[in-house]
Amino acid sequence: MKTIHIQEKNIQELRALFLDVFSNEPWFDKWENGQQVDLYIRDLIDNQNSLSFILVDDQGSTVGH
């Protein structure tokens, strides 16, 4: 596994992981739609003061952020 900077190509996979993690126990966050999550992720990665990384497995699939 390795860490990489989040790139445009990672957003869709990251959205699915984010929704899976934060919509369930213990957070139970309510997100209206995937576009909300996309905007949230873009706010993070477009911020010049943010270091945004993801953890990818040996096949290149996102496993954490």
Rank of each mutant, 00 (worst) to 15 (best):
1 M>Y: 07
1 M>K: 03
2 K>Q: 12
2 K>I: 14
3 T>F: 15
3 T>M: 09
4 I>F: 08
5 H>M: 03
6 I>C: 01
6 I>N: 01
7 Q>C: 09
7 Q>H: 06
7 Q>D: 05
8 E>W: 07
9 K>I: 15
9 K>R: 13
10 N>W: 03
10 N>K: 05
10 N>R: 03
11 I>V: 14
12 Q>S: 15
12 Q>H: 09
12 Q>C: 08
14 L>E: 04
14 L>I: 06
14 L>W: 03
15 R>V: 15
16 A>I: 04
17 L>G: 01
18 F>G: 00
18 F>K: 00
19 L>N: 14
19 L>V: 12
19 L>A: 13
20 D>V: 07
20 D>P: 02
21 V>N: 08
21 V>A: 11
22 F>I: 09
22 F>W: 13
22 F>L: 06
23 S>T: 15
25 E>H: 13
25 E>W: 05
26 P>I: 08
26 P>C: 06
26 P>Q: 09
27 W>V: 08
27 W>H: 10
28 F>R: 10
28 F>C: 10
28 F>I: 08
28 F>M: 08
29 D>M: 10
29 D>V: 11
30 K>Y: 14
31 W>K: 04
32 E>Y: 13
32 E>R: 10
32 E>D: 11
33 N>F: 02
33 N>C: 14
33 N>E: 07
33 N>P: 05
33 N>I: 02
35 Q>A: 14
35 Q>T: 15
35 Q>E: 15
36 Q>N: 15
36 Q>Y: 07
36 Q>F: 07
37 V>Y: 01
38 D>P: 00
38 D>W: 01
38 D>R: 02
38 D>E: 14
40 Y>F: 14
41 I>A: 00
43 D>R: 12
43 D>F: 06
44 L>K: 08
44 L>Y: 08
44 L>P: 01
44 L>W: 04
45 I>A: 04
45 I>S: 04
46 D>E: 13
47 N>R: 09
47 N>V: 11
48 Q>D: 14
48 Q>K: 15
48 Q>E: 14
49 N>V: 06
49 N>Q: 13
49 N>G: 12
51 L>N: 05
52 S>F: 11
52 S>E: 06
52 S>D: 10
53 F>Q: 04
53 F>M: 11
54 I>L: 09
54 I>H: 03
55 L>N: 02
55 L>C: 10
55 L>D: 02
55 L>P: 02
55 L>G: 05
57 D>M: 06
58 D>Q: 12
58 D>K: 09
58 D>N: 09
59 Q>I: 04
59 Q>P: 01
59 Q>V: 05
59 Q>R: 10
60 G>V: 06
61 S>M: 05
62 T>G: 10
64 G>W: 10
65 H>W: 09
65 H>M: 08
65 H>D: 03
65 H>V: 12
